[in-house]
Nucleic acid binder design. Structure first.
Lengths: 349, 349
DNA sequence: TTGAAAGCGATACCAG
DNA sequence: CTGGTATCGCTTTCAA
């Protein structure tokens, strides 16, 4: 079923059917209705490939995120969901590409073969070859996260520096003096992941400002690593009374480690960090955290990209978000239990 | 940059370039190398729309899942991730479509406009108009989950009946006599969601077989609902000593409710269910559960679909999986505390 | 082993 | 207001 067949049955030219559909040229009511009847009868829908070939637009956006092997973090998945829904609302389809490098086959297909009109990139690194690549090609794209020098590019991001600092200040205000930082996996830090770097920076500087004793850790993206990491923390400094984390996937393990060490939240230990609300609310006690507004970020990224597609050559725009800390139940005043002096160090049993 | 330009620069016909690329016709080494050099020089990649138009295949599969408004469950997202990775490994792209009905715009675009070669459907209902629609059109598709009468269709599914029954038997073997069932939200049950129905069935029958006293509940897909649901359970029958759940998103809330009621797992209460392992391992104590093998299911769905695409007309195939229960730490013998008689009912404070 | 040309199914320009 | 036709970039048949 194609446009020629519709034209034949309606007794008009193919171009007339096309114009009746697009409205880009006036068509008499009579003709339009005649055409519409045929279309409804046959359930005709124009072929997307042909249309894309003819007018150079696919009405599809690419969503590029690194392959995760076994598991994605909840946050990554939240972004995917929000981007897809926002795009659907704007009548765009979303093509997924699990690629971490600009040389990945899937990445090449998306861009090189022009399968998409534009792309949204996730999991940005401070130095990101994918971003540079796209910028060089002047390929319309928006990043969720920002590189070291984001000037001239389109992005929506979180102010991880400020967020981590806010966590530190919150803990310092509560009287905590010895605080640990639980980051994403070391391999991601080394690879230059933005959130890991800026978060660490913000934490370190704010802690120095407040004169806190700190230790920083990298931690795998899973509960078992979280538990192991917590054991290390209490082993290396049993007097630690609080931690800040960016690692939502490890959160459950951190909690478990605390429970095993006999530390009761928030009485003798406080936990806070940067985590999407749905995960913060899953743990008990619920996590006091700067909530990552995944839905808003996905929606804004889509809006920016569509704006860029509709108005090529416009000045780069971006959104830097700094969500407030939501007070829940995982932080409390330090010293409630003076734990380190009344019990043996954990992690040694 | 198109195939004509490559042909011109290499001094050959367009068809020769095409054949050099596809290998569907012998091309002399000399010619091929000449062409390849030009291609490498210019970084040429064939246009996907043109190719799709010419040969009728898009090398893209559609992944259809219901719009979730605010949040997807972790399991849904796990499926998405696994399908995307499996497809990428087979050089297929994945187009996402958040649509619950066959009338959704996104659904129509995907199929009607032939944006995809085939589709994978998630969140199947016992009576599913999307599945019927696709079957009528003979559109290549595979479902994750199965309808009431899955004969003649392609699917990969979980034997929820057997899984729920296995949970019941596990608890009964441990001596539990009063057991609750925490299902997905009522609205999904009413809508006929397969897992909710078959799971409930399996639970009910197995419980009857073992002579257990049971209560069944529907519960919203979020921690707050889980907590509320647990309060109701203990309020309506304080002597309940165990529960089975399909609702992974509520799990954190169920645990919290138990903690608030002073029930210690697994000493005075046991929890088990059907949940993907990564979520089962997030909670403390880790959940003894039939692990949903999301990755395997996604991979198998992709394999089945590609098989169906490559060999049209083949006999329908399917995989029914029954993963075993992984013993972790959330279940234990009943009666360890004889809780109901020594403390007031929970949920009344 | 290679070239020429006819589609694939739309869009949009040029005429009338 | 409508029709005819070139065009998008690739695949594949037909001929040499």
């Amino acid at each position: 079923m194609n446009i020629g067949e519709i034209a034949r049955r309606a007794g008009v030219a193919r171009s007339t059917v096309s114009y009746a559909l697009s409205g880009k040229r006036p068509v008499s009511d009579e003709t339009r209705e005649k055409i519409q009847r045929v279309i409804d009868d046959l359930g005709y829908r124009p072929n997307a490939s042909a249309r894309a070939l003819a007018n150079g637009r696919t009405s599809t956006i690419g969503l590029v995120f690194p392959p995760a092997g076994n598991h994605y973090t909840g946050m990554q998945l939240d972004f995917i969901g929000s981007v897809v829904e926002a795009a659907a609302a704007r009548d765009y389809d979303v093509l997924l590409s699990p690629s971490g490098m600009d040389s990945d086959r899937s990445f090449q297909r998306l861009l090189g073969e022009r399968r998409v009109d534009g792309a949204i990139l996730m999991e940005i690194r401070l130095e990101d070859e994918r971003v540079d690549h796209l910028a060089r090609l002047d390929f319309p794209s928006v990043t969720i996260g920002r590189t070291a020098r984001p000037g001239g590019t389109w992005w929506v991001g979180l102010d991880h520096t400020a967020l981590a600092a806010a966590c530190v200040h919150h803990l310092a205000d509560l009287g905590h003096r010895r605080v640990a930082f639980v980051n994403r996996p070391e391999q991601l830090l080394r690879a230059g992941y933005e959130s890991a770097h800026r978060g660490l920076d913000g934490f370190t500087k704010a802690a120095a400002e407040r004169g806190l004793a700190v230790r920083t850790y990298c931690c795998g993206d899973d509960p078992a690593s979280g538990q192991a990491c917590l054991e290390r923390i209490l082993h290396e400094d049993p007097a630690t009374t609080a931690l800040v984390t960016l690692n939502e996937a490890a959160l459950g393990g951190l909690y478990r480690g605390l429970a095993h060490a006999g530390r009761h939240l928030p009485r003798d230990f406080s936990v806070t960090g940067v985590v999407a609300s749905r995960w913060a609310e899953t743990v008990t006690p619920q996590l006091t955290a700067a909530d990552v507004p995944a839905e808003e970020m996905g929606r804004r990224a889509v809006d920016l990209l569509i704006e860029r597609l509709d108005h090529p050559g416009g000045a780069p725009r971006h959104h830097l978000l700094t969500p407030p800390i939501s007070l829940r139940a995982s932080t409390g005043p330090a010293g409630g239990a003076s734990f380190a002096e009344t019990t043996p160090p954990a992690g040694t049993s």
